[in-house]
């Protein structure tokens, strides 16, 4: 069977796996963005929170993904739960760090002017600081997404969703019928998902970056 024939014959399985792969990444990144940006906001004002959270997020990344997923099995079982949690925590570091960097990197005069004009801390955050830091925060989210799209393939080992099954099942029986096709189809699917997510973020960036930050002087 050629690669093309293989993809056509297994289209249902492949497309379902790809959709699940994209879905688990999307949910994980949404959770990580919510939590990570929140922690970043707390962290930009408090050195304690900042240092602790960044150190913790960095420490998580040093744990091999297979080990983390396996360790989670007693807590969240096989499948979606463990996959989702590990992907979420792996995504923290770039998001927290970019949120903190973005907020701390703002022109001090802008923030002082805002306070001096009578914007409350909350309003200043919502109307000035976050919009200005947003391009950097979004970059953090995008980097995290690219990172966990790859890691999501490992979820196959804990019976998780996604294209990992194709890849590793193929690899485990290399040499037999269609084994290379399965691995190839899974890998290619991951690449396609990565490209699609990147296009998505490109569009989001374009649509959500305040115009005043895009204009040429």
């Amino acid at each position: 069977m050629s690669f093309g024939e293989y993809v056509i014959s297994r289209w249902d399985t492949l497309s379902l796996a790809a959709a699940e792969h994209a879905l688990v990444v999307a949910i994980a990144i949404a959770l990580a963005a919510l939590i990570g940006v929140g922690v970043g906001i707390l962290g930009h004002g408090s050195p304690r929170v900042r240092e602790t959270s960044i150190a913790a997020a960095a420490a998580i990344l040093t744990v091999p993904s297979l080990a983390l997923m396996t360790l989670l099995i007693p807590l969240t079982g096989l499948g979606w739960g463990s996959t989702l949690i590990s992907l979420t925590v792996y995504a923290f570091l770039p998001i927290i760090r970019n949120t903190v960097t973005g907020l701390r990197g703002l022109d001090a005069a802008t923030v002082e002017a805002g306070r001096g004009m009578g914007l409350s801390r909350l309003r200043l955050l919502a109307q000035v600081q976050l919009p200005l830091a947003w391009p950097l925060i979004l970059t953090g989210i995008r980097i995290s997404t690219q990172m966990i799209i790859g890691i999501a393939a490992i979820a196959a080992f804990v019976d998780g969703p996604g294209l990992g099954n194709q890849i590793f099942e193929g690899l485990s029986r290399l040499g037999s019928v269609n084994s290379l096709n399965a691995t190839l189809a899974g890998t290619l699917g991951v690449v396609v998902i990565a490209v699609l997510f990147d296009l998505f973020f490109f569009a989001v960036r374009h649509l959500t970056t305040p115009r005043g930050l895009r204009v040429r002087p």
């Binding site: 022109d107 001090a108 005069a109 802008t110 923030v111 002082e112 002017a113 805002g114 001096g116 004009m117 000035v128 919009p131 200005l132 305040p210 115009r211 005043g212 930050l213």
Partner: peptide, 14 residues
Amino acid sequence: GYAIQQVGLFPHLT
């Protein structure tokens, strides 16, 4: 009214 040397206009607002 408050005006400072570095002005501190909000770059994302007109």
